[in-house]
């Protein structure tokens, strides 16, 4: 009975992953083989389509753009939010909880509400279609969730280290930099992981705020490339694999942390 159930679960999981397999297998078929043998395993591995798409799509440039934007945004989000979380976690007054409420309000605002007025704002200050503009937007949009994470983590840390630091003549800034920030390392990892996942796959914000052909991020690049050639399977599938690969590798190595991070907290209450 258990054996039958186990076999059934394996079968369902395989069927579930069929579209992913279809994408991978079709991506290494020549156009002739796609026509003759659309569903079966490829007889020969054909990587010409990959090379062709890699060059025509300007793939490397788009990946570097995305990595750059993700890296700078992550550093910005972590620094700005950890700085803000420190007094919010350590000072218990009416205004500090009011500021905390003010930040958590941002968790509820859908990006569509912000985008239309933000587009005009960015255009009028000359930040439309610049890396800096998109990075500032990513930092600001992620402040609510990062402040929320950092505040609850700092609250769980003992205060004694910071107090000892202050007695020894540190200023609050040096206490933050040399004592608090290093202790935040695990939660910085979680926050950075979430940011990487969301920025890599994000489409709407770079579509609206960074559309220049050379500075495009990967998903906007895939979209505009496939918008022209999307009906041709020999371009569609290699482009789809190339667009997904970096994040799939990332997921493969960090699967435990990613699943735990997305699942955790949701069922504690």
């Amino acid at each position: 009975m258990t054996l039958l159930s186990a076999f059934g679960l394996i079968l369902v999981t395989v069927i579930y992953l069929l579209p992913v397999g279809y994408m991978l297998l079709t991506s290494v078929k020549s156009s002739l083989e796609i026509a003759v043998n659309p569903l079966g395993l490829p007889h020969t591995l054909n990587f010409e389509n990959y090379i062709d798409v890699f060059n025509r799509m300007n793939y490397l440039r788009a990946v570097l753009n995305t990595v750059f934007i993700t890296a700078v945004s992550s550093i910005g989000i972590v620094l700005v939010s950890a700085l803000a979380a420190y007094p919010l976690a350590r000072v218990q007054t009416r205004w500090s909880s009011a500021v905390y409420q003010y930040f958590s309000f941002g968790l509820m605002i859908p990006s569509f509400v912000v985008i239309i007025p933000l587009y005009s704002l960015m255009r009028s200050v000359g930040l439309l279609n610049t890396y800096a503009g998109l990075i500032l937007i990513y930092i600001a949009f992620n402040i609510p969730f990062a402040v929320f994470f950092f505040t609850s983590f700092i609250r769980s840390l003992p205060k004694e280290l910071e107090e000892a630091g202050l007695i020894d003549g540190c200023t609050p800034i040096t206490v933050f930099w040399y004592i608090v920030l290093p202790l935040l390392r695990p939660v910085i990892g979680t926050v950075t992981m979430f940011i990487t996942l969301s920025i890599w796959n994000d489409f709407l914000l770079p579509l609206v705020f960074l559309f220049d052909a050379n500075s495009r991020t990967i998903m906007v690049n895939v979209y505009s490339f496939l918008g022209y050639y999307g009906f041709n399977p020999t371009t569609l599938f290699p482009a789809a694999v190339l667009g997904s690969l970096p994040l799939l590798i990332f997921f493969f190595f960090l699967q435990r942390q990613i699943i735990a991070g997305i699942t955790a907290g949701s069922v504690k209450g």
Partner: peptide, 19 residues
Amino acid sequence: ALFTPGMLSLIIVGFVWSF
């Protein structure tokens, strides 16, 4: 395994499923 499709981007999944 079941988590994997959700790691792909909506854009790419949209194109692949259109096909």
